Computed example of a mutant assay.
Amino acid sequence: MDTPDGFKAELIRGKVVVSPWPALRCCRPMRLLREQLQAHASEGHVAETAPILFRFTAAERAYGPDLFVADEEAFEEEGRHADSAALSLVAEFTSVSTKDADWNEKLNVYGRLVPVYLVVDMQNSEITCFWDPSPHGYRSRTTVSFGEALPVPEPFGFSLDTTGF
């Protein structure tokens, strides 16, 4: 699907949802997050903000995370949807229009498969790390205010510096 410049499309609850890319004020924290994650990513994994859709077959959904870390081999396939099994982390930067989906639908879907999910809450100046996925969702979470260190568990295993957020 071709979207207008500045917009992305995701499949949410069986519907195509077109939403704008993150606001300008997300640029710096997104870059800082990507750089720190890339430095701690597993070999062969890449941290990206590219507009890529990942298919979650069991949930019959596809999402285009604001930022992701995934096995580079996932991008050697044909087609427009990468396999969500390649993901080691996803991060969503909340906005007024996406906050509900980031905290509910995406949390539910990611929590069954993706090892680490970061919600960068731009409205409340907080970041939450979810980890330990299960068939019922994530088993663990930690929230800190921007400026505080956030422990990011394996497969990353480091403290994220949120000072510049």
Rank of each mutant, 00 (worst) to 15 (best):
A91S: 11
A9D: 10
V120K: 05
T3A: 15
R28H: 14
D102Y: 07
R112C: 00
F93H: 01
D161F: 00
L87G: 04
V16F: 00
P29F: 10
M30K: 12
Y63V: 01
T163L: 15
E10N: 07
T162I: 10
S140G: 02
L67S: 03
R139A: 09
N108A: 12
L24F: 11
F56T: 08
A91T: 09
E76A: 13
L150D: 01
G111H: 06
T128V: 01
V114I: 12
M122N: 01
E48H: 09
A82S: 11
E148A: 12
E10C: 04
I12Y: 00
W103G: 01
F93R: 03
A91K: 05
A39H: 14
S145T: 13
G79L: 10
L87F: 01
T142Y: 08
W21D: 10
V17A: 07
A39W: 09
S125L: 15
E78S: 14
K106C: 00
P65M: 03
P135I: 05
D132Y: 09
T142H: 14
V46P: 00
S42Q: 15
T143G: 06
S84F: 04
Y63D: 03
Y63A: 02
A91F: 08
S95E: 14
A101V: 11
G157F: 10
S145C: 15
E148Q: 14
A82C: 11
A86V: 08
H136D: 13
L150Y: 05
T128F: 01
I52R: 08
L37M: 15
Y110K: 03
V46Q: 13
D83G: 06
F75L: 11
R112S: 02
K106S: 00
T162M: 08
D102V: 06
T98H: 08
I127V: 15
M122A: 08
A70S: 11
V116L: 03
V96S: 11
A50V: 07
Y117D: 00
V90C: 10
T49V: 09
Q123H: 09
A47R: 02
E60Q: 14
G6S: 10
T94V: 09
F75H: 00
P151T: 12
K106Q: 02
F158S: 11
N124Q: 13
F130G: 06
D83V: 00
Q123F: 03
Q36L: 13
E76C: 05
Y63E: 05
R141E: 12
K99T: 11
E77D: 14
S19A: 10
E105L: 02
A50T: 15
F130A: 01
A62F: 05
R13E: 12
F68G: 01
